[in-house]
Structure formats: structure tokens, C-alpha cells
Design a protein around this nucleic acid. Structure first.
Lengths: 338, 338
DNA sequence: CGTTATTTGAGGTGCGTACCTCAAATCAAG
DNA sequence: CTTGATTTGAGGTACGCACCTCAAATAACG
């Protein structure tokens, strides 16, 4: 049998009340008693029965996912996964909900973050980096809230990220792209929604480094920014087709590939172009099946969601996590392993 | 607030005792009462508080993983993951342990399965298919035990599998192999420990079908069986090198690639050979880094272990699972996304 | 030394459920 | 209508822990 608090009390030679005070940090306990309890915890290997504790405490955690309001298909998938996870975590006293934030307006995003964060125990934030948002997040963190960044890389601040390592993802894209492209010299187009996003920067870094080292025959051209505007994307792609005679591949860095790939379809013959894109959506899946996209670099959104929830809970309960469970894998998707 | 059993009793217009009888299938309840309770469950959306139930019941589940005793590196990794999962599930009243079975001796394996299975609530079995083992498993299942097969595909019996779809894994191998290999005609070597294993058969099927359809320039040669014997593997590989002048790739189907890849190194120049193998181990990881292996088709063993445990629990508690969480992904590993 | 502040122990209640007992109510059959 | 069987209700105890109160023991201090 697992030792209970009673066993702990006996082992430490103190009363249940004192054990409780130590375990729950209630204060008013002498140093000697605290030490005795901790020693006994080690000695008999006591671990709190979290279910029982939560039951007794009647505590329910409130976690919120803040997602961009104009998110595309990928964010749509995220909502589905959050709903799903919401149900399974409800049994464990964890309420998960979502809120849409105006991603393009850093100021309002920061304001909403502060407001919503005050009411929740944990926040999982998907938003472009900006000083305002960063400050709001750090302030919440100081107030004992637990904040996670989704999909945006380690960055410089002290907000824990959940999602793939974007530099490694870029490198993976480079490796697949390099191997899928016939040897011989060629140029590679690189597309992003905007290069002011941290994730695009990191992907580009990883992509360039790996391509330069392993595939010196391929030249990565400067990043092209679509701003998610279809017309602009077509113009850019057409210009690229005109100005570069030896384009053999394209890397679409943004999580919403549709606009860019559709533009590529107009300007190029995709049969002769290796196209690597990110994330699994209905669009990219269909494009992969149709041979328009050659490979997807993806991360499992369900895993990201569940991992974020587990990590927020672990932080709330001051516990550790199982690192290997929380590592988000960089998946390579082909038609055969969709 | 989530409705409790008290709320349920009130809503159904019956007593707590009756609610309890219905919920726990204790019998001695009139049809009308049962119907009223079920109706009320639907109406107010009652769901059992599993933590409280387990606490009250004081029940701890015993789950066992049966793994081949002479397993190689891959099985070693599995043990690590089981240890890890064992700790995290212990908090939830689930005891997870392992036992080694003599995989090559179907008779003894079946006997051990019957003996160990009788003492556990759930069994996760990794073993080659054999009528004896299959019968023992089905018998246990009839006795209310919950059995899962690890890594061995759907098969024909009614034992639920946990692990990747081996046919799709074979197809994925074919797709990667085909794209990594320079166009033009060529021959492909296919290795297995033994083709009497169900997983190898399925992988081969998926591989052949995909290769024939998409890469008609490549010819997959008959499967070569190493029986995990290094000397035999070298002989086989050397013979293949002698008899086939245009070998451009090799597919190593077994989860322990070391023996085969080492043999290939002797007989071929791996720089001119695309090698696809399975599963991430220290060996395959190093070989991938060294460029000896070009890609790995893998599954996350930690995920498999945790999924098996969750599924056994769900079966014990007669609950559903979150399908998207339990699907084991076919991972493609390159150096960049290790 | 007495006085006050601090620390400790004993005990109780409740979280939502399981599981048990016993008596009362209801039903079916003769 | 009686008898016996079946169904129902009321109530209790327990699981492991959180959180509260009150009194007793101990320490710190002038």
C-alpha cells in the first residue's frame, strides 16, 4: 500500500495536523517539525494522492487557451482538440476554455491577456511576439499565474514554450526538400506570412543552415511575405517565376499553406517543383494527396493541447512533468503516413 | 457544478441507494427504476467522478507488460518507458509491471500468459503470433481480463492492437525509399528477422503495393531472413551483392536493424544505397547520423506504453477512449528531426 | 517569575463515491 | 386477503486528504 498522511505522521513522530501544515504550507510550524516531516517523506516515500487531495479541496482549475481570432484551418483544428481535451480533463476537475484574441493588435491582445489571465489559473497563449504581450504575460507570471506560449519557440523571455522546435523544423524541411529534389543546382523559394513572426525567423534559420551545409547545390532565395493575401501571393509567385529561371523547390513556412500553395499553382508547374509546407489541415492533406505538396512538416495539435494542459496543471500543483511525454515531435507527413 | 449522485437521485426521483445499484450494476432493481435513473443521467448530464469512485473503491489495477526476454535495444527502450509510465500511473492507483516471456517458445509463452494473466487486470502482450498464444489470450479475455497486443497489427483475432498500422508503415517506407532513390531502374533488398512474424508480413504487403504503384522503376526482391544471426546476415547480404548488379536500396523491416545494417555495410557501399529501417534505438540513431541509414520509420514507444495503459484502464472501467489520443503515428525520422 | 507568542495535538466536517445492513414498501401469486 | 418474494429507502462507514477550531504544550521575553 502507498503510505498515507497517517503513516507519514506516525513516521515523522508528529500529529496529522502538523503534517497537514507542512504539506500545505500553512505556516506556524517549527523548523524541527518541518525537517522531521520532510525526512519522513523521503524515508517512507510518501507521495500525495492527488485525486483525493483535489476531491477534498474541491478545487477546479481554470485553464484558458487564447487563440488568434482570424486563425485559419490550423487554429480550427486546435479548437476541435481543445474541445476534446476539455471533456477528458473535466473529470479531473480541470475546466478548459478558449478565447479569441485580435492577434494583429498587440495592444488589445495584451489588455485581453491581462484581463482573462487574472481570472484563470493558467493560460496557453498563441500569439505573435510583441513587447506589449510579453510584458503582460510576464506580469501575470509574477502574480502566480502560469503562462505557456504555443507554437512560438523558446525565444528570449522566460515563458515556457509548447510546440516543436522551429529551428529543427526548418532543418527538417531542408533535409526533406534537399533529398526530394533532383541533384544539380537549383533555387529554392521560401514563403512566410510575415517574417516578423518569431517562428518564421527560427524556421528560416534552421532551414538555411541545414541547406547550406548539406545541399550546397541549392540556393535559398530571400523570404517572400504574403501577408496571407491571395492576390499578393500570386503576384509574388509570378514575379519569382519570371525572375528566376531555375526554381526547383519551395518551402512554405507559415502554418496556413493554402494561400501560398494556390499561388504557386498559378505560377509554376507543381510537378516539377518540390513543395514542402507546414501543418496538417484539410487543405494541406488534400494537396499532399494530389501531389501538389510533397511533404508536410507537422506537429500533432492534439498532443500540443493535452501537453499544455498537463504542464499547466503540473505548475499549479508544483509538480514535475514526464519530459518524454511532453516533447512535441516534428512529424514528417507523406501521403502514405497521413 | 458537476451533478453528483445526490443530484442524480433527486432528478430521478429515487433514493441514493437505488442510484448506486443502477450505476454499479448490483441488481435487484425494478425496470422502471433503472429506466428513470438512465433517463435522469441523460437529462442532467451526470458523469461519474472517477477519482472519487476509485478512492472509495480503494481498487488498484494491476497491469502487466509481457515482453520477449531476448528483446534487443527496442525492447530495452520499452522497459525504460514502462518504468516511467509506471510512476506516473501509480498516483492514479494503477500498478504497472513487466515480465519477460520466451518469445520463441510459443508453448511456454502461452502457459506464462495464462498464469500471469490470471493475476492481473490487464495484459499488454508483445509476442509473435502463434495459435497457442492466441488461444491463451482469447481464453483470458473470456474470463474478463483485458488483453492488448503490442506492435503486431490488427490480425484476424479479436485482440485489440496497440501500435502503428504495419501496412501503412511499409507503404511509408516505400514512399520515402522511392523518393530518396535516384530515378531510373533499380533493385531493392528487403530484410526481415523472419517472415513468419505477422508484422513483417504486413509491412511487406504495404511496401510492395506502394512501390509497385508509385515507383515501377524499382523492383523489390524476395524477402531475406536473417534470423537475427550476424554471420547469416553477412552471407545473405554478400550473396545479394553478387547476384544483383543494380541494387539501389534496402528496406530493413525488423525492429532490430543492427544485425542487418552491419551486414549491409560489409557487402555494399552505403553511400550508394538508400537504407530505410525501423524504430529508433541508439544504434539506428547513430547510423542515421552517420548516413548509413537514410530514414527511420518509427513509432513512439513511450506513447505506445501510455496508450496501452490508458486503454486497459478504459476497458476495466467500461469507458470510452479519446481515439485521437490513442492513434499511434507513423513517424519518419531523419537526422534533422531526431 | 509571569506573561505573551508560538508551536503542537486532538478532533471534527466534508469532498463524491462505493458498499453494506436493515427495515419498510410494493408487488405477484394463491 | 394473506403469504412470500422482490424492490426500495434510509442510514452508516470508509477511502485519503483539506481545512477548520480549540485547547494544551512549549518557547521566548522582559
Amino acid at each position: 500500500m502507498r503510505p498515507t498522511t497517517k503513516d507519514l505522521a506516525k513516521a515523522a513522530g508528529v500529529s496529522l495536523a502538523s503534517v497537514d501544515r507542512v504539506l500545505n504550507d500553512r505556516g506556524g510550524v517549527g523548523k524541527k517539525t518541518v525537517a522531521a516531516v520532510h525526512e519522513a517523506i523521503e524515508r517512507i516515500g510518501f507521495t500525495r494522492n492527488v485525486s483525493a487531495a483535489n476531491l477534498a479541496r474541491g478545487k477546479t482549475y481554470e485553464f484558458r487557451f487564447l487563440l488568434p481570432e482570424d486563425g485559419g484551418e490550423f487554429v480550427g483544428k486546435l479548437y476541435d482538440r481543445i474541445d476534446e481535451a476539455s471533456q477528458m480533463f473535466e473529470e479531473e476537475g480541470i475546466k478548459v476554455s478558449t478565447a479569441a484574441i485580435p492577434a494583429l493588435d498587440a495592444h488589445r491582445t495584451a489588455a485581453m491577456l491581462a484581463e482573462i489571465g487574472a481570472k484563470a489559473d493558467g493560460i496557453a497563449l498563441m500569439s505573435p511576439d510583441s513587447p506589449q504581450v510579453r510584458d503582460a504575460a510576464l506580469r501575470l507570471q509574477k502574480d502566480g499565474k502560469h503562462i505557456l506560449k504555443l507554437f512560438s519557440g523558446k525565444g528570449v523571455d522566460e515563458i515556457a514554450p509548447v510546440g516543436i522546435d522551429n529551428k529543427a523544423a526548418g532543418a527538417t524541411a531542408a533535409q526533406i526538400l534537399g533529398r526530394f529534389t533532383p541533384s544539380g543546382p537549383g533555387e529554392v523559394l521560401v514563403f512566410a506570412d510575415t517574417m516578423s513572426a518569431q517562428d518564421s525567423i527560427e524556421r528560416r534559420l534552421g532551414f538555411d543552415a541545414f541547406l547550406a551545409e548539406r545541399f550546397p547545390n541549392l540556393t535559398a532565395l530571400p523570404s517572400l511575405e504574403t501577408y496571407r493575401q491571395p492576390a499578393r501571393a500570386v503576384t509574388i509567385a509570378s514575379n519569382a517565376a519570371r525572375n528566376h529561371s531555375n526554381v526547383v523547390a519551395a518551402y512554405v513556412m507559415s502554418p496556413e499553406a493554402a494561400v501560398t500553395v494556390n499561388a504557386l499553382k498559378v505560377a509554376f508547374d507543381l510537378n516539377n517543383l518540390t513543395v514542402i509546407a507546414h501543418e496538417r489541415t484539410d487543405y494541406t492533406e488534400a494537396a499532399l494527396r494530389a501531389g501538389e505538396i510533397d511533404a508536410l512538416i507537422a506537429q500533432n495539435p492534439g498532443h500540443v493541447v493535452r501537453s499544455a494542459i498537463r504542464q499547466m496543471r503540473a505548475r499549479c500543483e508544483n509538480r514535475g512533468i514526464v519530459a518524454s511525454q511532453e516533447a512535441i515531435r516534428i512529424e514528417i507527413l507523406l501521403e502514405a503516413n497521413l
